[in-house]
Write a protein that binds this DNA or RNA. Structure first.
Length: 596
RNA sequence: GGGGUCGUAGUUCAGUAUUUGGUUAGAACGCCGGCCUGUCAAGCCGGAGGGCGCGAGUUCGAGUCUCGUCGGCCCCGCCA
């Protein structure tokens, strides 16, 4: 069948096109039969338009009445003005309709498992199983269109700044530092494996050594770790690397890129330069290395006020090198004892032993432990927090990390619960001066806080052996509304420094040579000073789309158990496939097919 | 690896808690049939459709109790 050429889409016709004969294609959205008149909303990715069938053309009318939801049809018709009483101001094409003169049913649809509508009632599970239908929903189409626009505006910005878009391998060498690798068996070299990149980190550094100076890539990355609302096993980064730069220059590119994207895709103006906050300060004031600055609450330190306090909990905490901090929750005094017990249970997740609270009600401070404090100490607390009527002060006394995590959680959790901020705003900031290393509390091992290629501050290099936890790194994170949306660093371009870092995290020279020999070699052949940044693209799209999960801006995402409900991946493979790869499963009884 | 929560018609949910387990499991939307010439979540009338994720167990009797298991979502760990 030869299809008549589509003259218009379903979203572009208006009263400027009255009288026009049009050829339309689309999906049957809603149907409203009236016995004499039949209305049909035709939908495509551009919009919806009302088609009218009149009973005079009996055959066409009968054909139209037989249509079902989501059938794909062709309509030939004339654009006509709607009667004044039948205008629909809620519809972009609501002033007109198309009077049908011909129709072809191109492909009927089975009754869909759920209705294609924005206010979707189907569960996410069902939506994922029927993703190709879910993606027909205007909301999902908008999200993917926005995603496209963000990609294009990023390319536009970076191209203009002289960056080259260069692809790097998807099949690469496994370097099991950091996240767990996805492995790909090699057929030609049985018993050996490629890995999918956790990020193109080493490749982009090598491109700098090759002299490409300014590189970017919209890069797919793979990490075999547990999933969350903002974490998928495969995700996309806008990956950037530059030569001959310091952190300031990379951050300038990063924030100008973000501002460009915001302006081009949402028409929003972000004020640059973004504020910079020290890692230590962010942890102290907001209890997080990715603070949500929409929330106007800050954590206060009580160490000074309580340094001589006789109250056992405080005294013990300080003598164990712990810290005491608190946060004021305006209006929080309405929380019941039970509510606060629940909060205490929640921060037990962070190993907090307890949660102390004071309520300011009827002009005075009430708390179970005030009797253990001196009048000066109580006055100190009042001066520090200046509580108003109905406010609540929450205090955690514990080891530093526990206090920060707990109060950071309470800050965001309660700000949301009490509606203490405008969630429509965007507050970007840089978190800088990260520590180079952190201690893994389980193994007691030192690991790179960012990654081992990050350059330590030159003045700290001498501490790499003696006191590595004091070493700061030339790393920076870009944080937006409590989400880490980009992170980067200046890299070690001198092989000696790089080797010292490997030593500090207990990768001996031989091991370093095995794993990263190619990079160490490259550093010795005229590697320019370089650094870069990578944006978590899915999170960025999520924020700009006003979504709360990256699954809603990824066309075919996995569930939190890393299953693809639509196609059932991962699945078992045949014995032949395994044999060809030289693989043998050792526990076949443990292998399950997903239930259908 | 751990914690929480959910799983009942095609879909979304009610029913599960000491009114302490009890005869044919309900509603709405969708679907099917009929009526209806201006609706746009069209309307009106009628109908079909599930045995309660799966598997054991307790009991005269289980959607309701117990154990296990699978799956969705949120969180901790993990994510250099």
């Amino acid at each position: 069948m030869k299809l008549p050429e589509r003259t218009h889409n379903c979203g572009e016709l208006s009263s400027n096109n009255l009288g026009l004969s049009v050829h339309l294609y689309g999906w049957v959205h809603h149907r409203r039969p009236h016995g004499g008149l039949f209305f049909l909303d035709l939908r495509d990715r551009y919009g919806t338009i009302q088609i009218v069938f009149r009973p005079e053309n009996k055959q066409l009318y009968k054909q139209a009445e037989a249509l079902g939801s989501e059938d794909v049809i062709y309509i030939k018709g004339t654009v006509v003005q709607r009667p004044p009483e039948a205008l629909n101001p809620n519809m972009a094409t609501g002033e007109i309709e198309v009077f049908a003169v011909d129709m072809i049913l191109l492909n009927p649809s089975k009754v869909p498992p759920f209705l294609i509508e924005d206010d979707v009632k189907a569960s996410e599970e069902l939506r994922l199983e029927w993703r190709f239908l879910d993606l027909r929903r205007p909301e999902m189409q908008k999200a993917l269109i926005l995603r496209h626009k963000i990609t294009q505006s990023a390319r536009e910005f970076l191209n203009k700044k002289g960056f080259l878009e260069i692809e790097t391998p998807i099949l690469m060498k496994s370097t099991p530092e950091g996240a767990r690798d996805y492995l790909v068996p090699s057929r030609k070299h049985k018993g050996r494996f490629y890995a999918l990149p956790q990020s193109p980190q080493t490749y982009k550094q090598l491109l700098m050594v090759s002299g490409f100076d300014r590189y970017y890539q919209i890069a797919r990355c793979f990490r075999d770790e547990d999933l969350r609302a903002d974490r998928q096993p495969e995700f996309t980064q806008i990956d950037i690397e530059m030569s001959f730069v310091d952190p300031e220059q990379v951050m300038a590119i990063g924030e100008n890129l973000l501002a460009h994207i915001f302006l081009k895709t949402r028409g929003l103006l972000l004020k640059t330069p973004f504020p910079k906050v020290d890692y230590t300060e962010a942890m102290a004031r907001y209890g997080s290395d990715r603070p949500d600055l929409r929330i106007p609450l800050e954590i206060q330190d009580l160490g000074d006020i309580l340094k001589n306090c006789e109250f056992r909990i405080f005294k013990q905490c300080l003598s164990d090198a712990g810290i005491i901090r608190g946060i004021k929750i305006p209006g929080g005094a309405s929380l019941s004892r039970g509510d606060i017990d629940k909060l205490t249970a929640e921060i037990a997740d962070f190993k907090a032993k307890g949660l102390l609270f004071l309520k300011f009600q009827e002009g005075e401070l009430n708390s179970s432990f005030l009797k253990f404090l001196t009048p000066q100490e109580i006055q100190g607390i009042i001066n520090l927090f200046t509580p108003g009527e109905g406010d609540l002060i929450l205090i955690v006394a514990d080891q530093s990390a526990i206090v920060s995590n707990s109060l950071g959680f309470l800050r965001t959790h309660l700000a949301e619960k009490f509606n203490l901020y405008n969630d429509q705003e965007f507050y970007p900031l840089w978190v800088v001066n990260f520590p180079m290393f952190e201690l893994d509390p389980e193994s007691g091992r030192l690991t790179a806080a960012h990654h081992p290629f990050t350059k330590p501050f030159e003045e700290d290099v001498h501490l790499l052996n003696s006191d590595p936890l004091k070493v700061k790194a030339e790393a920076y994170d870009l944080v937006l509304n409590g989400n880490e949306i980009a992170g980067g660093s200046i890299r070690s371009h001198q092989v000696e420094v790089q080797q010292k870092v490997f030593e500090a995290i207990k990768i001996n020279p031989e091991e370093a040579q095995n794993k990263f020999g190619f990079l160490l070699k490259a550093l010795q052949y005229g590697a320019p000073p370089h650094g870069g940044i990578a944006f978590g693209f899915d999170r960025l799209v999520m924020l700009l789309a006003g979504q709360n999960s990256i699954r809603n801006v990824i066309p075919f995402p996995k569930t939190t158990t890393a299953l693809s409900l639509m196609d059932g991946a991962p699945t078992a493979v045949s014995a032949e496939q395994l044999a060809e790869l030289g693989l043998k499963l050792c526990t076949p009884e443990d292998i399950h097919e997903p239930e259908k």
